[in-house]
Write a protein that binds this DNA or RNA. Structure first.
Lengths: 221, 221
DNA sequence: CCGGATACGATGCAAGTGCATCAGAACGTG
DNA sequence: CACGTTCTGATGCACTTGCATCGTATCCGG
């Protein structure tokens, strides 16, 4: 068997070239030639990896989705040190909001695909799937927090997860649109979570201590 | 002076054709020819109205922005009947979330432009401007609610407005991505607002009456 | 009723698109 | 080393794109 190539690796590299281009000049500026140039391969190689341009874009979306999901999962799995559930929740959501600078590209690409979803059945399916996974993850985190008594029992995990996910997505959008800085967005997100955690957690709590310093740690590390 | 044409009207008509096309098949599928066909005019007419394609897209975005802003403003101005500030807030946000079916197109277009913003300075500027206006509007509504004692005084109007706007935008995104139905999104939004309104509004209120029936009216009319 | 300015729509054009094709390089096997 | 298979990158092709051009239809002031 001659000339074996690591196709998976190449596909990933091309996918990242696609993402770079989308982030740089939008989805309509993605052409096979440009992708090939950006990825440092020839057009023929791209065509060998993906039968059509649609396939390529779809793979790029799956690539991004997997990337985001995995990062969130790792954030949780890596917490072998007994982390507070609330901290975990904060960090995970901050991760999902794609606010830091190196996630900006992913955020732009994600948004571009969402905007394009109505025109493509398959893209929509992947998006739907990913959102479902993320929602499940957050809901699980909330339930976990309820187990550890950090999150009020009366909150509906599914509902709150929906709200949190929507908030995170909205903030991502706002940052991309230049309406917020990442720091501001992070602050808004954090405040919402704080509010969620202390919301009538005990009947005696009359909201005097607005900010318990113990949980002031930011999800930056 | 010969052959006077209502350019403003034509520009608007073309803008709406642009939006229709964007909603139907994404922004990269918008060509001058297709726009002309959709608007029922010739390509020459389109070129006369807009010097370049960029100009056309920019105008379409401004068209949409103005449309959305105006609708929200009218929602408020039209409340000559003394409406509760909280109701006004709910209705306005529901409007801004672009959840009903006839707003779906606008939502898709809006999202498409946001996704394209990083590639175009001018688009970004318009988006930034519109978001600032909307935020101001919501913050004003919250302050108004505080004046009428419907909204807790200790809430920071600016901050809550940011959260609400982000939540609304995120829900819009989720609906477009097929993650939520408009009804579900509306419910999530409404619950968040409800929670906001009752959050330690009075120290004596211990969260017994979860849903005062007076504000159960949905922002559908 | 007509002169002339204006808007119109068709056409041209160069550039770029996605995809198909193909001669040959690159490589594992005999 | 030579064979044969796999992969490559250049080229071709039909098509679309945004924009420029131009003759003509359209309308108002005279």
């Amino acid at each position: 068997m001659p000339r074996q190539v690591d196709y998976e690796d190449r596909r990933r590299r091309i996918a990242e070239a696609v993402c770079t281009l989308i982030a740089r000049s939008g989805m309509e500026a993605v052409s096979l030639r440009d992708v090939a140039a950006e990825a440092g391969v020839s057009m023929g190689a791209v065509q060998r990896c993906f039968r059509t341009k649609q396939d390529m874009l779809l793979f790029a979306l799956e690539h991004i989705s997997q990337h985001v999901s995995e990062r969130a999962n790792q954030r949780i799995a890596a917490s072998s040190t007994p982390q507070a559930a609330s901290t975990l929740l904060s960090h995970t959501l901050a991760e999902l909001a794609l606010l830091d600078e190196e996630s900006k590209t992913q955020a732009q690409v994600w948004l571009a695909f969402v905007a394009h979803a109505p025109a493509s059945e398959k893209l929509a399916a992947v998006l739907h799937d990913t959102y479902a996974k993320l929602h499940g993850l957050i809901a699980w985190l909330i339930r976990y927090g309820q187990d550890t008594r950090e999150v009020p029992q009366r909150l509906d995990p599914d509902r709150e997860a929906h709200t949190l996910l929507a908030l995170a997505d909205g903030l991502t959008t706002h940052v991309l649109a230049g309406h917020h800085s990442p720091a501001t967005a992070l602050d808004i997100l954090q405040r919402h979570i704080d509010h969620l955690l202390k919301s009538h957690s005990t009947a005696a709590d009359e909201g005097g201590a607005a900010q318990p310093p113990a949980r002031a740690c930011r999800p930056s590390g």
